[in-house]
Computed example of a mutant assay.
Amino acid sequence: MAESKPSAPRFAYKGSRLKPLRAFCQVARLGSVSRAAEALYLSQPAVTLQLQALERELGVRLFERSGRRLAPTREGQLLYDMARPLVEGLDGLATNFREQVRGLDAGELNVAAGSSTILYLLPGIVEAFRERHPDVRLTLHNVTGAGGLDLLRSDAVDLAVGSMLDVPADLGYTPVYRFEPMLITPPDHPLAQKRELELADLSPYGLILPPKRLTTYRLVDLVFQQNRVPYTVALEVGGWEVIKQYVAMGLGISIVTAICLTDADRQRLAARSLARWFPPRSYGVVMRKGKFLSAQARAFVELIQPERSAPRDAYASGPSER
Rank of each mutant, 00 (worst) to 15 (best):
L42A: 15
L42K: 11
S43Q: 04
S43C: 00
S43L: 05
S43Y: 00
Q44F: 05
Q44I: 14
Q44L: 02
Q44A: 10
Q44N: 15
Q44M: 07
Q44C: 12
Q44H: 13
P45L: 01
P45F: 05
P45A: 03
A46P: 05
A46T: 15
V47A: 04
V47S: 11
V47H: 02
T48E: 13
L49G: 06
L49C: 08
L49V: 04
Q50M: 15
Q50I: 03
Q50R: 15
Q50P: 00
L51G: 04
Q52H: 09
Q52M: 11
Q52R: 15
A53V: 01
A53G: 15
A53E: 15
L54E: 04
L54C: 07
L54A: 02
L54Q: 02
E55W: 11
E55V: 01
E55T: 05
E55Q: 14
E55Y: 10
E55P: 13
E55C: 04
R56L: 05
R56C: 03
R56V: 01
E57M: 06
E57L: 00
E57G: 02
L58E: 04
L58P: 07
L58C: 08
L58I: 05
L58F: 09
G59W: 08
G59Y: 12
G59C: 04
G59M: 08
G59A: 10
G59P: 13
V60P: 06
V60Y: 09
V60K: 10
V60W: 11
V60C: 09
R61C: 07
R61S: 14
R61P: 07
L62T: 13
L62A: 01
L62P: 11
L62Y: 13
L62I: 13
L62K: 06
F63V: 08
F63I: 05
E64L: 14
E64V: 14
E64K: 14
E64G: 13
R65N: 00
R65K: 05
R65I: 02
S66H: 10
S66E: 11
S66Q: 08
S66R: 14
S66C: 07
G67S: 00
G67F: 00
G67M: 00
R68S: 13
R68L: 11
R68F: 01
R68T: 10
R69F: 04
R69C: 01
L70C: 03
L70E: 00
L70I: 07
A71L: 06
A71I: 04
A71V: 10
A71D: 06
P72A: 03
P72I: 02
P72W: 07
P72D: 08
P72H: 11
T73I: 01
T73D: 06
R74F: 15
R74W: 12
R74M: 13
R74C: 13
E75T: 06
E75W: 07
E75A: 14
G76P: 11
G76D: 14
G76T: 11
G76R: 10
Q77I: 03
Q77R: 04
Q77G: 10
Q77A: 12
Q77N: 08
Q77Y: 05
L78P: 06
L78N: 13
L78I: 12
L79K: 14
L79D: 15
L79P: 13
Y80V: 04
Y80A: 13
D81V: 06
D81M: 02
D81Y: 03
D81L: 08
D81Q: 10
M82L: 15
A83D: 02
A83W: 09
A83F: 07
